[in-house]
Design a protein around this nucleic acid. Sequence first.
DNA 1: ACGGCGAATCCGTTACATCA
DNA 2: GTGATGTAACGGATTCGCCG
Length: 209
Amino acid sequence: MAMKRVNEIEEEQMMFFSSFCSGLQTQRPKGEAKPRRRMKKGKVGVEVGRKRKLSVEQANFLEMNFGCERKLESARKDQLAAELGLDPRQVAVWFQNRRARWKNKQLEEECARLKTLHEAIVVEKSLLEAKVLELTEQLSEAQKETQKLLEGSDGEQSWSPSFSPSMNSYYHPFLGEFGFKENENLFCLPEIYYTIGMEWDDYMSRFLL
DNA sequence: ACGGCGAATCCGTTACATCA
DNA sequence: GTGATGTAACGGATTCGCCG
């Protein structure tokens, strides 16, 4: 069995490195069907089908080849198997498992990247919320100031003919800060402002109703 | 165009080895 | 001795290319 053969050649197997990353060929010619061999499941203590860890040299050699190509052509697999004294099936399985590990690692890295991105967004959200709070307080102060002015000048509203203290339509005293004109149609804001607008209305209704 | 077949691959799982 | 972890190997499902 291939496992036994590994023991016999373990010391001499690394002499084949000269053909590293070479010998790529195309698919196996038609008619040369290869039987799929599988090791039988061995029970604990039973030598037949017993799993054996590949040597460090074998693993390193396979690792280097994996660095060159994620998948193996059939001929290259046979060549690798011959060079390492392994069953071609073992080489195929090793590449299969290696691809799975590589894929898992890629997923882990992508997950970590998204986590970092998420954390940055959470921080930014907190900053924006603090800013909203600050602006809301400014608005509240402005409302109080306006109220005082109105109460102090009973009936004298000539400074703002269209102004209505009831504010049935939302009046934004400092929209200029955001680049809006006073009479601009606020319901035609770009999509990016919609979410903010909802919160704005929420805050406005909280303070004005 | 279609279905059958063989080979390769993927995915989930099992079996075993190693280590703390 | 035991649980956790890594990995070789397995088995079923799927995909792909070839052929009649």
